[in-house]
Computed example of a mutant assay.
Amino acid sequence: MAKEPGRKLIAQNRKARHDYHVDDTYEAGLVLTGTEVKSLREGRANLTDGWADIEDGEVWLHGVHIPEYAQGTWTNHTARRKRKLLLHRREIEKIEKAVSNPGVTLVPLSLYFSSGRAKIEVAVARGKKAWDKRQAIAERQATREVQTEIGRRIKGMPG
């Protein structure tokens, strides 16, 4: 199959940006089986319950749901198996140092194809408190109201 130029988004974890303060992001490759790649090419994946962990100097992705390939045979994969992430040694050491702090975790943000290869964007993130979430919603709503008011004034409509 010819390589597709650019970036094709497969799945995105919108809930992660709502539940966590994102500190750093990293792009990592994935070690996948053939049926997993075929399932991803159909655009089927769910990152909502996903998280990553460092075991013996390697980063592993847990809880990401890639459904079984419909035309797969006995070679089909398990939907929620743990998958190895491909990162440089220095990146892994940096992530390990950050995750050792209390309240910091590694969460997947998006899964996509970049030049024909499956990649995942993972983030070193700190959990938000309930008041942080409410404050973020209030800020978003306030900026939206300001933008609509500016638009109304530009168009000459009464406020």
Rank of each mutant, 00 (worst) to 15 (best):
M1L: 13
A2M: 05
A2E: 12
P5M: 08
P5G: 05
K8I: 08
K8W: 13
L9G: 03
A11W: 00
A11T: 00
Q12Y: 15
N13I: 04
R14L: 13
R14I: 14
R14K: 15
R14Q: 11
A16W: 06
H21L: 06
D24T: 11
D24I: 13
D24H: 13
E27N: 09
A28Y: 01
G29H: 04
G29R: 01
L30V: 00
V31P: 01
L32K: 01
T33G: 15
G34H: 03
T35N: 09
K38R: 07
K38N: 05
R41V: 09
E42K: 10
G43M: 06
G43F: 04
R44P: 11
A45P: 00
N46A: 10
T48D: 06
T48P: 03
D49M: 11
W51R: 15
A52F: 02
A52V: 05
I54D: 09
I54G: 07
D56G: 13
G57F: 01
E58Q: 05
E58A: 12
V59P: 01
W60A: 02
L61R: 03
G63M: 00
V64Y: 01
H65L: 13
I66T: 00
P67A: 04
A70Q: 14
A70G: 12
A70V: 14
T75D: 13
N76W: 06
T78E: 09
R80P: 09
R81N: 13
L85V: 02
L85Q: 00
L87A: 06
H88D: 14
H88L: 14
R89D: 10
R90W: 04
I92S: 05
E96L: 07
K97C: 06
A98T: 09
V99H: 04
G103A: 04
V104R: 06
T105K: 07
T105V: 13
L106E: 01
L106P: 02
L106W: 03
V107R: 03
V107K: 03
P108L: 01
S110R: 11
S115V: 09
G116F: 00
G116K: 03
G116T: 02
A118I: 03
V122T: 01
V124Q: 02
G127W: 13
K128G: 05
K128P: 04
K129D: 12
A130H: 12
W131L: 07
I137R: 12
R140F: 13
Q141H: 08
T143P: 08
V146D: 09
T148D: 12
E149L: 10
G151S: 15
K155W: 10
K155D: 10
M157G: 08
P158R: 12
P158Q: 11
G159C: 12
